[in-house]
Design a protein around this nucleic acid. Structure first.
Lengths: 162, 162
DNA sequence: TATTGTTATACTCTATAACTATA
DNA sequence: TATAGTTATAGAGTATAACAATA
């Protein structure tokens, strides 16, 4: 019967699944509003933060470099991205957003009000709490571990599944 | 400029983005382990919970009915799913998992240890808290609102640091 | 030789529109 | 007429393999 985790964990996982689904719908919707696919939107947002070589784009997007060629092609044909030679290494092409590309990326971010909409239901205290829980869940170190023992070290482990 | 939300909200949104990315990687990886695509895995898991007509599958998957035809075709050609006529309405075809399909769906669920892995880092109390926060964020009513004030008022704040 | 980016190929997913067989 | 499912079509993303230019 492939034992399931305890009911609480299942509930939380289901909730996370719902969050994931909504996040994606929202992302695709926002991208489509600008006539972009999800992949194009993700690539454009990456470049808006920092221009980079094709190879690095592939790493960031976790896909094969050959795919990046096509996605950048489509963005370039719409005047949102440019390919520039890297003076230091003539094999490398740097993908750089045009001014219009940057503007689109900016509007895209604004459209992504998944940020504010659902989170708006939470108080500041709750958001802080959620942040801490997600950080712990993801194994991310809190940014300011001032005190040596940040609170919950090994003391209160409590796992509940088989 | 397009004013950004406050830094705390941005941080939480970024964390949620990370959760979403990991969830997807994990899902695709688990599906690939069984030589399934993500879409095929999602459809098969739906059917394992409850056989349903093609039309309803499309609604659940939030895609066009014509897509479902192809996905079911591929699963059927591998012997994981069957199409059965609906006695009540001869236009309708019910998609039903075969025994092997059910077994695959079950193994798939087990592979999805995204469930236990990251959540294992949280104590039971933390998981409960996370559940409540996500429910509030998603606007989902807690399932047993016995008492008029369901609890998450101001009384039981419990943060573990900060 | 190794690396960067591209091309060629094949498969899947996706939406749209037109078709069929039922209702 | 309306509905369920399919087919046909086209575009996009994906991985693999082979290739050119450069290192």
């Amino acid at each position: 019967m492939t034992a399931r985790p305890d009911p609480l964990t299942v509930e939380v996982v289901d909730l996370i699944g719902t969050v994931v689904a909504r996040y994606h719908e929202e992302y695709e919707r926002a991208a489509a509003e600008h006539s972009l696919t999800g992949a194009q939107a993700r690539l454009l947002r990456l470049l808006a933060m920092e221009p980079m070589p094709m190879r690095k784009l592939a790493q960031c997007l976790k896909c094969e470099p050959s795919n990046v060629t096509g996605i950048v092609d489509r963005l370039e044909s719409r005047g949102l991205v440019e390919r520039r030679p890297d003076p230091a290494d003539r094999r490398v092409k740097l993908a750089v957003p045009t001014d219009e590309g940057r503007a689109t990326a900016d509007r895209l971010r604004t459209s992504l009000d998944f940020a504010r909409q659902p989170l708006g239901r939470l108080t500041v205290a709750e958001r802080t709490l959620l942040k801490q829980l997600l950080q712990r869940m993801l194994g991310v170190e809190p940014e300011v571990p001032k005190a040596p023992g940040t609170g919950r070290e090994a003391g209160e482990r409590r796992r509940s599944e088989g």
